[in-house]
């Protein structure tokens, strides 16, 4: 059992909502996102002793969640390639209930970003993490993170302008 300064129950209560939302937005499947979130929290429970600074809990949890998602995405990409090679058709995309109005459009705009850029934008703009925290959580170089955020935000701003003009 991990002997840590951070209580697992508190960590779970404090971060389950954002981690699940983050993963839902990344993999676009609520059930799968919850499975990945559960896996992330189980890993966090095992490695709780590694978390020395309770203030870093948020970026630490995002790091685990993003790694779990990336691992799943890699496996899924391989499975998909195998399936398409043998069947010549796409696997069904899991979907969430469509949101309405502008929320739907921002969801569409976000879905057009690559998962990596989407993850970085979410961590920075939705969850208020600093660039260096995002870099640590995503395992990307700081320069790449800044560039992803700049370009991603630019695309979203362009979308927002077009929406307002319409």
């Amino acid at each position: 059992m991990p002997a840590a300064s951070v209580n697992f129950d508190a960590l779970l209560r404090a971060h389950q909502g954002v981690i699940r939302a983050f993963l839902r937005r990344l993999c676009k499947d609520a059930a799968l996102a919850d499975d990945l979130a559960q896996e992330a929290f189980l890993i966090a429970h095992q490695r709780l002793a590694d978390l020395r600074d309770p203030k870093a809990a948020k970026s630490w949890m995002f790091q685990i969640a993003y790694n779990v998602y990336a691992g799943h995405a890699r496996k899924y990409a391989r499975r998909r390639a195998l399936f398409e090679a043998s069947h010549g058709a796409d696997l069904d995309e899991a979907t969430q209930p469509p949101p309405a109005g502008m929320a739907r459009d921002i969801a569409t705009a976000m879905d057009n970003l690559t998962p990596e850029v989407r993850a970085v934008i979410l961590m920075n703009m939705s969850y208020g993490m600093s660039h260096s925290e995002v870099a640590r959580a995503s395992g990307l170089p700081l320069g790449t993170v800044k560039s992803h955020i700049k370009r991603g935000a630019e695309k979203l701003r362009t979308f927002l302008k077009a929406y307002e003009q319409a």
Binding site: L12, V18, R20, Q38, S126, A153
Partner: peptide, 26 residues
């Protein structure tokens, strides 16, 4: 516009209520 974008993204990725998730993990 950036404030609006940030607000929209906050709604887009709003935290999800527990709904028994924590109990399941525990």
């Amino acid at each position: 516009m950036d404030n609006e974008l940030t607000a929209l993204l906050s709604d887009y990725a709003a935290p999800i209520p527990d709904d028994g998730f924590a109990a399941k993990v525990k």
